[in-house]
Amino acid sequence: MYIADHTWPELGDYVAEESVAVVPLGSTEQHGPHLPLATDHLIAEALAREAAERTGFLCTPTINVGVSPHHRQFHGTMWVDPPEFRDYVESFTRNLTYHGIDRLVYVNAHGGNVQHLREVGRRLHEDETAYAVEWMWDESIPDLIDDLSEFNGPHGGPKETAMIQHIAPELVREDRLADARDGGVKDMSAIRDDNFVHGARTFYDARENSDNGVFGDQTDATAEKGEELFEAATEQLVKLLEWLDAREFAELLPAGHVDPQPGSRR
């Protein structure tokens, strides 16, 4: 159920029975010449809404702007700095806990958000406010992603292209797929060879590695592959939500200090 479509009494009925929510998060940033800036938050919202529809759990509005300064050289990219992003998501989450939610999945579709969402989850777990976990759709189905494309890429590649071809085909510039491939980096092994020196990662921004900001072979993407990816990722998210719902909240709290407890021998 989508929270913004319901009245407050209806939401009261929900939290009287359930305490699980999904929070979709993405970005508004460049995704090459063929995909919209909305790519990440479109994917996150579609997956979260579908999983909520299948399970009946609560879905919140989408957080559309994330931590994306590494794409700042490309027109239109928006970002917030990490401390502000973490504080906003934490405050957003504490708002939900005030209304009775104590278990959340951050349905994330942007790599730049990952470490910050995990940090927010750690804070909430440490003070026993909520159990919130970050879930990245492509990390839930790595084998399928590898099977579907010979040249994958972490950004604007065939997996994201296929997902948008499935979710919002009207937003894909199909006539620019070859441009995306030829103007970017098709084979990611070159990046690994050229940008790690004596064990140190020597780059910060996408622009340093790819002239058009994307990686992989976008011409290998199809809407049919996108549908397969979407269904497989949704299935994993549904299973995660069901697992989370089956846990007693006390099971999810931090473990106690090992014995002897501090001060116990005084």
Rank of each mutant, 00 (worst) to 15 (best):
E10V: 01
L11H: 08
E18I: 00
A21I: 05
A21T: 08
A21L: 02
V23T: 08
V23R: 09
P24N: 03
L25M: 08
G26I: 01
T28S: 10
H31W: 10
G32S: 13
P33Y: 02
L35N: 06
A38I: 07
A38F: 10
T39N: 06
D40W: 01
D40H: 07
H41N: 12
I43H: 04
A46Y: 01
L47H: 14
A48R: 11
R49Y: 05
R49F: 06
R49W: 04
A52Q: 05
E53Y: 12
F57N: 09
I63N: 12
P69C: 03
R72I: 09
R72H: 14
Q73T: 13
F74T: 13
H75N: 15
G76Q: 04
T77C: 13
V80Y: 15
D81N: 11
D81M: 13
P82A: 08
P82G: 03
P82C: 01
F85M: 08
F85Q: 07
D87N: 15
D87R: 11
Y88I: 05
V89H: 04
V89D: 06
E90G: 09
E90M: 12
S91D: 13
L96E: 03
T97F: 00
T97V: 11
I101C: 03
I101F: 00
Y106D: 05
Y106K: 01
Y106I: 00
G112E: 01
G112P: 06
N113I: 04
N113D: 12
H116M: 02
H116T: 00
E119M: 08
G121M: 00
R122N: 13
R123N: 15
L124W: 02
L124N: 07
H125N: 10
H125I: 00
D127P: 12
T129I: 06
T129K: 13
T129S: 14
Y131V: 07
Y131L: 02
Y131T: 00
Y131E: 05
A132R: 07
V133E: 14
W135G: 11
W135E: 09
M136S: 15
W137C: 11
D138V: 08
S140V: 01
I141Y: 00
D143V: 12
N152L: 09
G153K: 11
P154A: 04
H155P: 15
